[in-house]
Amino acid sequence: MAAMQRGIKPIRTCIVCRKSQEPSQLLRVNCVDGVITPTSGGKSHGRGAWLHLSCGYIAIDRKAFKSAFKLEQAPDLSKFKVFLDERLKSDN
């Protein structure tokens, strides 16, 4: 918190490409009850992971969420896939 008071901006790292950027450039997702859900707004519950929107499908292919959230089994990605499909269609 002291760093924020001095004007230092937080930096987050994409779980796929490992590039570090400000949170405004990345998408935060949560894993709640084994379901990967994109986070809207600044507040969210539980542990989060950060990634570029363009890295979303790569994260699914590489099973990056299982390791990012230290899960024993693969998480439910259905909501995340719908989110990606909608966001990427609207960006084109």
Rank of each mutant, 00 (worst) to 15 (best):
A74P: 01
K89G: 00
T13D: 01
L71I: 00
H52G: 10
I58R: 15
G48Y: 10
S54A: 13
A49T: 11
V29D: 05
A2C: 02
K70P: 00
A3R: 15
F69N: 01
I58T: 15
A59L: 10
T13Q: 09
Q21N: 12
K89M: 07
P75C: 02
H45P: 02
F83Q: 05
S78G: 02
R28D: 07
M1Y: 03
L77H: 03
E22R: 12
C17E: 07
K63C: 01
S24D: 12
N92E: 13
L88K: 10
S54T: 12
E86Q: 13
L26G: 07
G34R: 06
D85P: 01
I36Y: 03
S67F: 01
S20I: 02
D85M: 06
K43R: 13
G56S: 15
V35P: 02
D61R: 14
K43L: 11
S44I: 01
V35G: 02
C17L: 09
N30G: 13
W50A: 11
I60G: 02
T37Y: 03
K9F: 03
G46M: 06
S90Q: 12
K43I: 10
W50Y: 15
R18V: 05
K81E: 14
C17R: 09
C14I: 08
L77K: 01
G48C: 09
W50G: 06
G34D: 01
L26R: 08
D85R: 12
H45Y: 07
V16E: 11
K43S: 13
S67R: 12
F80A: 03
I58P: 00
M4H: 10
P23S: 06
A68G: 05
R18D: 06
R28K: 14
S90N: 10
A49N: 10
K89A: 12
S67I: 09
V29W: 03
E72H: 05
T13S: 07
K66L: 00
G46S: 08
I58S: 14
V35L: 07
